[in-house]
Each structure stands twice: as C-alpha cells, then as structure tokens.
Amino acid sequence: MNKLSLFGLLRLVISRDLMLAMRRRADVLTTLIFFVMVVSLFPLGVGPELGMLRKMAPGVVWVAALLASMLSLGRMFSADYLDGTLEQMLLAPQSLSVLVLGKILAHWMLSGLPLVLMAPVLGLQFDMSVQSLWVLIASLLLGTPVLSMIGAVGAALTLGLRGGGVLVSLLVLPLCIPVLIFGTGAVEAAASGMSVASHLSLLGALLVLALVFTPWVTAQALRISME
C-alpha cells in the first residue's frame, strides 16, 4: 500500500469521472445536442441572410456555449453529494483544492471540450471564414475552462438546494460576462482583419486567474454546503 501523490490524486479523480461518464454517455451527448440546437435555432429566428448570420455568428456560438455549459453544472457535484462520495472527498488527507481541480478538469473534458470540437461545424452553418473558425476554436479553448471553473463555485454553493439548477445559472451567468465579451471580441476582430492577440491574451489571463483561485473557493463552498 503506497501513499498517493497529489498528481496521483488528480489523475485518480479525472479518470474516475471520465469512467463514470463513459458508462452514462447520454449526459454528455445531451449537452452537445442542446448546443447544436440552440445555435441552429438562430437562423430560423432571424432569417437566413448570410451577411447578417456571418455578423452574428461569434455571439451566437458563444452564448450557446455559455448556456450549454450551465446545463451540465448541476451534475458536477450532485451525484457525489447524494451517494456520500463527497463526504469522503472532504475527508481526503490531501488537498481538497487539488481534488476539486480534478473534478473541474473532468467536467471541462466532458462538457467544454465537445463544444469546442463541435463549434467549427456550426460556424460553417453561419458561413464563417476559415481564419475566423480557427480564432473561434482558440477562444473557446481558452474560455470554456473558465466557464467550468466559475460554474464549479456556483454548483458548490447551490449543492442540494431545491431549484438549484436555475439558481446556479442566476449566480454564475453574470460572472461569466467578461469571458463572453473577450471570446466574441476575438472572433469579431479576426473577421474584420484586426489583431486578435489582445483578446486572446486577456482570455488567457482570466484562465490563469480562475485556475489559481476558483479551486480553493470551490473547496470552501463545498465545506460550507456540507454542514
């Protein structure tokens, strides 16, 4: 019997969550299908003129990604809360923040990453240029982990509350606005031929900031919610 290292713990938590998700694939697919549907509804709502769609595309894809990532937040901790695993996680002799980081990364791989991979296909529906598509992927790659991290705090705070699913969106969406602004800004800049470096580096800065603080804040929120 060996003592588990911090990295070992991180790997254990991520592989556990991925394994659980693979045995319950429907959950992952639901989020992705929701994302595709919301994006596809916009042309039906505003009309099929390509000029307007091209202009709207970054905002539509980003807002849909934001909503889709809200959808899966409720699941981040609730299953573990209900079957008692969360209690055991709080009693883990290693850092709870690292454990939470593992759960956040797994959540992103299951809900954020599929959106990133699907986004270019949806971008084509809106006649986006190849260059814009690349920037869209880059901005989503940097931005969706931040959504998972901020969302984790909301999910931890609303753990076990009635109507938690709606409440978590109410708490988290305003805090996600900067990500939305810089994310869509990058794609719009690319579409109008301007430099995207500043937008992407600001997104990167948000990612680093979130990476440093949110696992710890989420850990505190979990302790509060478990009382």
Binding site: N2, G8, R16, M89, P93
Partner: peptide, 14 residues
C-alpha cells in the same frame, strides 16, 4: 473499482 477509488480518495493506492 469502487474500493480502489475509495481507498485512493483516502490517500492510499491499493
């Protein structure tokens, strides 16, 4: 799997 993960969370690799 349950036992190994449970033990892992408790800090020991089994």
């Amino acid at each position: 799997e349950n036992l190994r993960i449970g033990a892992g969370l408790a800090g020991c690799e089994v």
